[in-house]
Amino acid sequence: MEDASVLDDARLTRYARHILLDELGIEGQERLLAARVLIVGAGGLGSPAALYLAAAGAGRITLVDDDVVELSNLQRQILHAMASLGRPKAESGRDALLALNPDIQVRAVVERLDEARLRVLAQDADVVLDCCDNFATRHAINRACVATCRPLVSGAAIKFSGQISVYDLRDADAPCYHCLFPEADDVEELRCATTGVLGPLVGMVGSVQAAEAIKVIAGMGEPLVGRLLSVDALRMQWHTIRFRRDPDCPVCARRGPAAAAFPGG
């Protein structure tokens, strides 16, 4: 069986524009080809994130979503088309990613994951993307990434506002999602279905998530660790807020030593 990370002539041509980047180069592209990516959510954020990671040659993508494609999704969820109406989003997304890049592997997981299952999938990934739309799932993903020392790229978007951050749980000093957004029962949660969201906004946020995941995989640049990047699309203003690990965080305060450097399991 051919090594998934080998750059043959076809791959050298396909990924040439990435290979030309000194910061990424052949070594970074080989890391991408060998990478295991878990994407939770195949909707507004997961669509651009998954498409760009598939186009970049992320070798094995696991796409998780228990929902089906509805007509109201198509205003922003560009992974799906009219022909996908009524289909599970994970399966529709898998087919779209393979149509874009048959050189990769894509697994569709059509289920609502409990914490045990999330931990298993996170353990099998090199990087996890939180592209879901509710706090409960975000916190469950965070706990799974803390438990398995997996880097987490989290994004959110509602109305005209979006935000992205990276929680690199391989670093014992890095904050987790709970450090920035403590879990609480009285948090008011806004949903796109009742509040609305600008279509291109989720594309902006999801694309940044893909870029951050590529940086983490390739080991280049400065990922958004300890920084929350926010965007106001109505005024088209970007802001960065720095934050630190909460030493008393109930989720990550007692986590073990950092995992080995990327890539690794």
Score class of each variant (00 low, 15 high):
residue 95 D to L: 10
residue 186 D to G: 07
residue 38 L to Q: 10
residue 185 D to H: 08
residue 224 L to N: 10
residue 25 G to L: 01
residue 219 G to D: 06
residue 17 R to H: 10
residue 263 P to F: 09
residue 22 D to S: 14
residue 15 Y to C: 03
residue 254 R to N: 15
residue 106 V to C: 12
residue 118 L to E: 05
residue 62 T to E: 09
residue 200 P to S: 04
residue 113 L to Q: 04
residue 205 V to P: 06
residue 28 G to T: 01
residue 48 P to A: 04
residue 5 S to P: 01
residue 94 R to Q: 12
residue 185 D to I: 05
residue 12 L to D: 03
residue 66 D to F: 15
residue 193 A to L: 03
residue 129 L to Q: 12
residue 86 G to V: 12
residue 82 M to W: 12
residue 123 Q to A: 15
residue 123 Q to K: 15
residue 111 E to N: 05
residue 204 M to E: 03
residue 241 I to G: 02
residue 193 A to T: 13
residue 136 A to Q: 14
residue 202 V to G: 09
residue 191 R to W: 06
residue 242 R to F: 08
residue 130 D to Y: 12
residue 51 L to T: 06
residue 175 P to E: 00
residue 148 T to H: 04
residue 69 V to K: 04
residue 261 A to Q: 13
residue 200 P to I: 06
residue 98 L to E: 01
residue 103 D to I: 06
residue 258 A to M: 01
residue 250 P to I: 11
residue 255 R to V: 00
residue 202 V to C: 07
residue 156 A to Q: 07
residue 190 L to Y: 12
residue 25 G to Y: 00
residue 257 P to H: 05
residue 215 K to C: 06
residue 148 T to C: 14
residue 174 A to E: 09
residue 201 L to Q: 08
residue 14 R to Y: 06
residue 123 Q to D: 15
residue 50 A to N: 00
residue 39 I to V: 15
residue 222 E to S: 15
residue 125 A to E: 08
residue 23 E to A: 13
residue 233 A to M: 12
residue 54 A to V: 08
residue 120 V to A: 13
residue 57 G to M: 01
residue 67 D to R: 11
residue 55 A to Y: 09
residue 261 A to K: 13
residue 190 L to Q: 05
residue 184 A to F: 07
residue 18 H to L: 08
residue 240 T to N: 11
residue 68 V to L: 01
residue 180 L to D: 07
residue 219 G to N: 09
residue 55 A to E: 05
residue 163 Q to N: 07
residue 258 A to C: 04
residue 158 I to P: 09
residue 39 I to H: 04
residue 140 A to E: 03
residue 130 D to Q: 15
residue 18 H to M: 03
residue 95 D to E: 15
residue 47 S to M: 02
residue 245 R to Q: 14
residue 74 L to H: 02
residue 45 L to D: 02
residue 88 P to A: 15
residue 244 R to D: 15
residue 202 V to H: 02
residue 265 G to C: 12
residue 139 H to Q: 11
residue 80 H to C: 07
residue 208 V to G: 02
residue 219 G to M: 08
residue 52 Y to N: 07
residue 92 S to R: 08
residue 174 A to F: 08
residue 45 L to E: 02
residue 157 A to N: 09
residue 167 Y to I: 11
residue 257 P to N: 07
residue 180 L to H: 07
residue 223 P to Y: 07
residue 67 D to C: 11
residue 115 E to F: 02
residue 250 P to V: 13
residue 29 Q to D: 01
residue 135 F to S: 11
residue 214 I to F: 06
residue 109 V to W: 01
residue 84 S to H: 15
residue 229 L to T: 02
residue 165 S to V: 11
residue 179 C to M: 05
residue 242 R to T: 14
residue 107 R to N: 11
residue 9 D to A: 14
residue 253 A to P: 02
residue 54 A to H: 07
residue 108 A to R: 01
residue 217 I to R: 01
residue 87 R to S: 14
residue 118 L to D: 04
residue 68 V to H: 03
residue 105 Q to G: 12
residue 166 V to L: 07
residue 160 F to Q: 14
residue 94 R to S: 05
residue 162 G to W: 09
residue 184 A to W: 05
residue 19 I to D: 00
residue 211 A to R: 11
residue 194 T to N: 11
residue 50 A to V: 02
residue 63 L to Y: 06
residue 129 L to D: 11
